[in-house]
Write a protein that binds this DNA or RNA. Structure first.
Lengths: 218, 218
DNA sequence: TCAATATTCAATTATTCCATTGAATGATGT
DNA sequence: ACATCATTCAATGGAATAATTGAATATTGA
């Protein structure tokens, strides 16, 4: 083990970091963690994993240094260990999108491809602040932990019932958890069917935060 | 397989990309590929792997979309599929350095930690071009495929014998393949012992190229 | 102290991954 | 067509990984 060359030893550790990302369930856990810290139980429930299983995946990621945990009473809260983790995740996404034909297929058939191409950039949204309605379709608790300043929170399931809240004259920009959070795609589809002018925001809140843009809470 | 939700399917593909990075040998192959395209045989030799083994690792990375291959006569040349791969690798490095104590340990004991902290940035080197001697300690063939403009190529093993070529009055900036390429550390140590003023360049040639800076060939 | 709850641990089975070996394929030049 | 060389394939045994189960630990509040 320690008889390897220092470079090989380092590469072994780097590989361990990559390994800790190399599982669909762990990526789902990370997507949740990108929203903010969460307890094991909540993470397990949101990802549909057994608690013990989620716990083991989380521990593995902790050993690799990509998440951190803190205990508070009976609960253990996990969070991303480093801002660079988001960068890694978007790197994986980018490579898969560009170089794996099947990924392109899935995106084209399940996510409206034009919506992702025509997404509003963060910069553009900042410039047009006030002139557009910003719609956050995530659950209320995630909204409370942080959202784009000025955004209205209407979780997707309430959207149909609350259409009256929108000004038909104003363009709507919808966002949710990240690039592949289906919620914002569905919101765009729903609103567009009602005649609203809607576009998606590129990526989601975690990337907004990572870009150093202001985040409102409460 | 295709009965999963589209998001789960995508995450599975992203995980496959991460998996293709998740092995020390594959990272070593990628470090080589970052220098430029290479045949299977050369890659196997430089990484110390059996040819069949190297071939299988390379194929696995190709399936994941992080490398690409082209055939030329009897040879198959592999190359990085995407510039984003370098970004992923540096992300892995960064997370490991910051969050895994053992990595910090290895760096401190084997690589002179001050040398990595005091590395010359690419920007600084560009500004001081002409006022410093730029030393490329990689093998001649890698140098020929691309190097920092104005750099002198003295492979590490020839360094002791060619000390006379340096102007003692000028500061030397040494670089090689990347952040953990031992060559440049050793070059710095050797030259410093002879009284030269030397520092390392941050990272190596692949990162220089990725930053969009000019590269000379021949 | 005891019961309840959140998390982790330990042990099991099934699966996937890895290195090695030797044979097969594909391309070149004679 | 043949010999040669680079690469890939296929099969093997051994190691690591994953999901499940049930038990163990730690913290809280009664």
């Amino acid at each position: 083990m320690s008889s390897r060359s220092p470079k090989t030893a380092l590469f072994g550790h780097f590989a361990a970091v990559a390994k800790s990302l190399a599982h669909a369930h762990r990526l789902e856990l990370l997507e949740q963690l990108a929203q903010g810290e969460r307890s094991v139980e909540v993470l397990a429930e949101r990802t549909g994993l057994a608690v013990a299983n989620a716990s083991q995946h989380l521990q593995r990621m902790r050993r690799a240094g990509i998440v951190a945990s803190r205990r508070e009473g009976k609960f253990v809260f996990y969070a991303l260990a480093d801002d660079a983790v988001l960068g890694l995740l978007s790197g994986l996404r980018r490579i898969a999108e560009r170089n794996i034909a099947e990924v392109d297929q899935v995106i084209r058939s399940y996510f409206n491809h034009r919506d992702s191409l025509e997404a509003v950039s963060r910069k553009e949204l900042m410039q047009r602040a006030g002139a557009v309605t910003i719609l956050d379709v995530r659950p209320a608790d995630e909204f409370a932990l942080g959202h784009v300043p000025g955004a209205v929170n209407i979780p997707l399931r309430e959207l149909e019932a609350r259409l009256a809240e929108f000004d038909p004259a104003q363009e709507i920009v919808a966002y949710c958890r990240g690039a592949y959070c289906v919620l914002s795609y569905e919101a765009v589809a729903t609103l567009r069917a009602r005649g609203f002018k809607v576009r998606r925001l590129e990526d989601g809140l975690p990337e907004w935060r990572a870009a150093g843009l202001p985040v409102a809470t409460g």
